[in-house]
C-alpha cells in the first residue's frame, strides 16, 4: 500500500480538526458567564458569579433536576433500546426471506422497504402525527417508539440481508440432517453465526434513533423530552449560543462518543458495504 499524498494528509487533518476542534470552544462557552464581542475568552467566568446569584447558571442548571436533562437522557436511551429490539424482531424474518428466497416483485418490495430513506422527513412526520391522532396515541413514548421504526427498519433490513446472504447454508442443512429441531438450529447454529451482524445492526439502529429530531418533535407533541428536543428548544432562536446550550450540546456529544468508543470494533465499515449497492 502506498502512503498518503500531501493533499490527502491535509484533507484528513482538516476532517479531524473540523470534528474535534469545536469541542474546545464549546467547553469554554459552557463555562462562560459573560463572553461579549470581541473577547477571545470570556471576560467573566461562570464560577466567579456562581455564588452571588440565586438562579442556577450554566452547568449548575444542567445538573439541577429542574433542567430535566436526566429524564430526557433516560427517554432517549429507552426509546433507542425499544426501537432496536422491536426493529430486530420485525427485520430479522424479512431479511432472511430477502436473502434466501427469490419471488416475483422482489425488487419492487425492496424498493418499497427503502422508500423511507428517500421520502422527506417532514412529510413522514406530519403524516405520522395524523395517523397517531386517528388512534389517539400522540404525545407519548409508545407513539415515538413506533414512529422511529419507520426510518430504522429500512437500514436494519439491508444490513441483516447482507449478513444472511453471507451465511453458510450448508451448516444449517447439516444441522437439520443431524436431526436438530428448527428451534435448535436457530438457537445453536443460525443465531451465533449472525450474532455479529445483529450487533452491528442494533448499534446502527441506536445511532439512528438517538439522532432523530423531527419525528420525535411532532409525534411527541412537545410532551416527551429527548436530548434532541431539549437542544432544539434551547437553540431554535438561532442567536448567540448561551452557556446552557453549549453545555447541553456537550452533554449530547458525550454519550455518542462513549458509545462509539465501546462499539468501534463492532461497527465495522464492511457491514455497510453491499447494503447500498442494490439501490
Amino acid at each position: 500500500m502506498r502512503s498518503l499524498s500531501k493533499l490527502q494528509r491535509v484533507a484528513i487533518f482538516f476532517l479531524i480538526t473540523g470534528i474535534l476542534g469545536p469541542l474546545a470552544p464549546l467547553t469554554i462557552a459552557s463555562l462562560a458567564f459573560r463572553w461579549g464581542w470581541p473577547d477571545l475568552l470570556p471576560s467573566i467566568w461562570w464560577w466567579e458569579k456562581r455564588d452571588t446569584l440565586q438562579v442556577p447558571l450554566a452547568w449548575d442548571y444542567i445538573f439541577d433536576p429542574v433542567s430535566r436533562v436526566v429524564p430526557a437522557m433516560q427517554n432517549t436511551i429507552l426509546i433507542a433500546l425499544c426501537v432496536t429490539l422491536l426493529a430486530l424482531i420485525i427485520s430479522l424474518p424479512a431479511a432472511k426471506v430477502l436473502a434466501t428466497q427469490n419471488f416475483k416483485g422482489k425488487s419492487l418490495f425492496e424498493l418499497f422497504l427503502a422508500a423511507p430513506l428517500i421520502v422527506p422527513e417532514m412529510a413522514v412526520s406530519l403524516g405520522m402525527l395524523l395517523v397517531f391522532l386517528q388512534f389517539g396515541l400522540q404525545g407519548n413514548l409508545v407513539a415515538i417508539i413506533i414512529a422511529h421504526l419507520v426510518p430504522v427498519i429500512p437500514y436494519m433490513v439491508r444490513v441483516l440481508t447482507v449478513i444472511y446472504g453471507e451465511l453458510d447454508k450448508g451448516m444449517l442443512d447439516q444441522a437439520a440432517l443431524l436431526g436438530a429441531s428448527r428451534y435448535q438450529i436457530f438457537r445453536y447454529v443460525e443465531f451465533p453465526l449472525i450474532l455479529p451482524g445483529i450487533l452491528a445492526a442494533a448499534l446502527f439502529s441506536i445511532l439512528i434513533s438517538t439522532n432523530i429530531f423531527l419525528l420525535t418533535f411532532y409525534v411527541g407533541q412537545g410532551q416527551v423530552d429527548t436530548l434532541a428536543t431539549l437542544l432544539f428548544s434551547k437553540i431554535r432562536g438561532g442567536g448567540a449560543l448561551d452557556p446552557v446550550s453549549a453545555g447541553l450540546t456537550l452533554v449530547i456529544i458525550l454519550p455518542g462518543l462513549l458509545f462509539l468508543a465501546f462499539t468501534h470494533r463492532t461497527l465495522k465499515e464492511e457491514v455497510f458495504s453491499g447494503g447500498l449497492n442494490k439501490s
Binding site: G36, G237, G239
Partner: peptide, 14 residues
C-alpha cells in the same frame, strides 16, 4: 433578525 434571540446577539456584538 428572525426573532429576539438573533436581535440580542446583533446588539451584543455591537
Amino acid at each position: 433578525p428572525q426573532n429576539q434571540s438573533v436581535n440580542q446577539s446583533l446588539y451584543n456584538n455591537g
